[in-house]
Nucleic acid binder design. Structure first.
Length: 632
DNA sequence: CTAGGGTTAG
């Protein structure tokens, strides 16, 4: 086999997986995997199974191998290994390969590699099992390094080994290395089977290269369930849940029968989409096909119902689940939290402990944000103080961010400041964003500037922060600073993210953007909106232009304001829905103060319940008030 | 003797 240059790995951009050194197969292992020694067995001696009778094993590698499969513990493998040495079975390649494989399956990579390292002759299976072993234990460095050595060994490439290398690229987010491995398929003239293709699609997908993933997917002559699932999951994760669900339907049309894993994937997609009628269809499908509610499917459904607007439906699933893990509990707590039902969220905590589940970081993020969404200041403080002390969960920047929200809401900017100075963890974009949010409401210009300075240094791509900052400066009359922020935005090529709202009406999704006129009934919608505004103004509504960027003139501002996407959606809902039904809509950004006031008043005037999901929480409007207590 | 896809977060 000819040697050719593989992996210009050292040339990969920094985001990619890097080989710090490349050497031949005789190089020592990185320390990391050697440290991963398996735990010593508790028992001092274990009786070998009947098949471990030395008589029958001595001259038969086949039965030797089959006895290896039965090994239950690391200690048993050691015993059989020893036996292999004393009986000279170790000379047999199949026996060594199986030994390596079994060690790897038990995550004993040090033992596996020791055997592999000392082999005089290795075949494809030897390489495959050792590379697969590294992949299994998550040692992506050695997985790719050994894969490279395999290529240099001159043995022909095979279909078994390649997916492991692709998986390592996926897990290290190394699309460039992944692409090189992808190209190896053609270099070696391998038959691109479903395993390899699925691995390639998955690699591109998890690295965020949706188009590359789709290209490979489209070119596949035959696709199996896994390939479809990978592609569906790709769209769900990359912000195209609609495409994801459409693909699921296409898969079924192609005669592929979904299994539980693919169901979890569409449930996840539906959670992203947040469309209740789709959620119900999926639920019906799951019931009809009699999938059992295991931890993962159940948890995914809790999240789906919560994100589609119904905490109570989520709770029903939660109660039906026989087995619950920390993720299930955290999801349920978070569900109550984002809907502003903080008390119920907190009630779950002791119940969780009671059932023997220990909280983790995410549980505390859910708890603290639930407190913040419901204004449970004192409870939040207590949880924050006890998480490290009583539960040994280290607080990270996310927890501090929750605390900033919580204290900011209470107007305790002094405490926010103190917290900021005391915290030892690195502060990220989200943290400074929260500080800025607190400053917007309570107008602490000094703290706002500190946050701004840090934010702009971090160079956020999120236009929301620039808008927030510019508004704070505008409110303080600092027009020069306003201009600077604007310049910074253009200089960095940050564009204001367009706000859109979509609304589910009669089982269909409609999407609106500012000043949208694409809807067939747009004339009626604008008529309705005009009527609404007139009625609201009689009731004392004054448009609040503070939330619009300050670089357009007042008249334009007002026009933009009147045609905000959520207002258009409300108007359309009033035209197209029954008078007693709730109105549900989703906004991609955070709802602005003006729309918040607007919707509150509408809910009172037309006596309708309105539910708005924005980018961080749900707002339940009724009778002129909102579940968020006017802090968002 | 060897191979893949799934759940929680300001």
């Amino acid at each position: 086999m000819t040697k050719f240059k593989i992996f210009t790995l050292h040339k990969s951009p920094s985001r990619d997986f890097q080989f710090s050194y490349c050497s031949s197969a005789t190089s020592p292992l990185a320390l990391k995997s050697l440290r991963q020694r398996p735990e010593e067995p508790q028992q001092s001696s274990i009786a070998l199974p009947q098949t471990h009778n030395t008589e029958s094993l001595c001259f038969d590698p086949r039965s030797f191998v089959s006895s290896l499969v039965q090994c239950q513990s690391h200690f048993q493998i050691k015993k059989v290994h020893a036996l292999a040495i004393t009986t000279a079975m170790i000379e047999n390649l199949g026996v060594i390969n199986k030994l390596i494989y079994i060690y790897a399956q038990h995550k004993a990579m040090a033992d596996a590699y020791f055997l592999f390292f000392r082999m005089k002759e290795r075949d494809n299976v030897s390489w495959s099992v050792i590379i697969g072993g590294f992949s299994k234990v998550g040692d992506n460095y050695n997985c790719l390094k050994t894969f490279k050595e395999f290529l240099l060994s001159g043995l022909p490439m095979d279909n078994y080994t390649l997916p492991f290398a692709l998986r390592a690229c996926r897990d290290t987010l190394s699309p460039n290395t992944g692409k090189e491995i992808h190209l190896l398929v053609y270099k070696f003239g391998l038959q691109c089977d479903v395993f390899i293709s699925a691995a390639i699609v998955d690699m591109y997908s998890k690295c965020g290269h949706v188009e590359d993933a789709r290209k490979v997917f489209d070119k596949m002559p035959k696709r199996d369930l896994v390939t479809w699932t990978v592609m569906i999951s790709c769209y769900a994760e990359c912000g195209s849940p609609e495409e994801s669900m459409a693909l699921f339907d296409r898969m079924k049309d192609n005669g592929i029968v979904p299994d539980k894993v693919s169901m979890v994937t569409v449930v996840f997609a539906c959670a992203k989409l947040g469309a209740m009628h789709k959620a119900k269809m999926i639920r019906d499908y799951i019931w009809r096909r009699k999938f059992s509610l295991d931890v993962i499917l159940g948890t995914a459904m809790i999240d789906m119902y919560a994100k589609c607007g119904s905490v109570d439906a989520a709770r029903e699933i939660f109660d039906q689940m026989k087995e619950k893990n920390v993720i299930s509990w955290s999801s349920m707590i978070s569900a109550y939290g984002v809907h502003g039902r903080g008390r119920e969220a907190l009630q779950l905590f002791p119940q969780m402990l009671q059932s023997g589940i220990r909280p983790n970081r995410i549980t505390f993020v859910s708890i603290l944000s639930a407190c913040s969404h419901s204004g449970l200041i004192e409870e939040g403080r207590q949880f924050f103080n006890s998480m490290e002390r009583d539960y040994f969960v280290e607080s990270d920047v996310k927890h501090y961010t929750c605390m900033v929200d919580l204290l900011g809401r209470a107007g305790r900017l002094d405490e926010v400041l103190e917290l900021t100075e005391r915290m030892k963890v690195d502060k990220d974009e989200g943290f400074w964003g929260a500080i800025l949010g607190a400053c917007r409401i309570h107008g602490h210009i000094g703290l706002a500037e500190k946050a701004a300075k840090n934010l702009l240094e971090l160079g956020p791509r999120n236009s929301g922060y620039y808008v927030l900052l510019s508004n704070i400066y505008a409110n303080a009359g600092k027009w020069e600073e306003v201009a600077k922020v604007r310049q910074m935005m253009t200089g960095r090529g940050v564009k204001k993210t367009p706000g859109w709202t979509w609304i589910e009406i009669n089982n269909k999704l409609y999407q609106f953007i500012v000043g949208d006129k694409s809807h067939p009934q747009f004339k009626e919608i604008y008529e309705m909106l005009k009527l609404l505004v007139e009625r609201l103004e009689l009731a004392g509504y004054v448009p609040d232009t503070n939330f619009v960027l300050h670089d357009i003139d007042e008249e334009l501002k007002a026009e933009f304001l009147y045609t905000h996407s959520e207002k258009l959606a409300i108007a359309f809902a009033l035209i197209a829905t029954a008078e007693d039904s709730a109105i549900r809509m989703t906004k991609n950004l955070r709802i602005c103060g003006d729309c918040h006031t607007f919707i509150k008043m509408v809910s009172n005037i037309v006596q309708r319940n309105i539910v708005v999901r924005d980018s961080i929480r749900f707002h339940h409007f009724s009778n002129g008030s909102c579940s968020c207590g006017d802090y968002w």
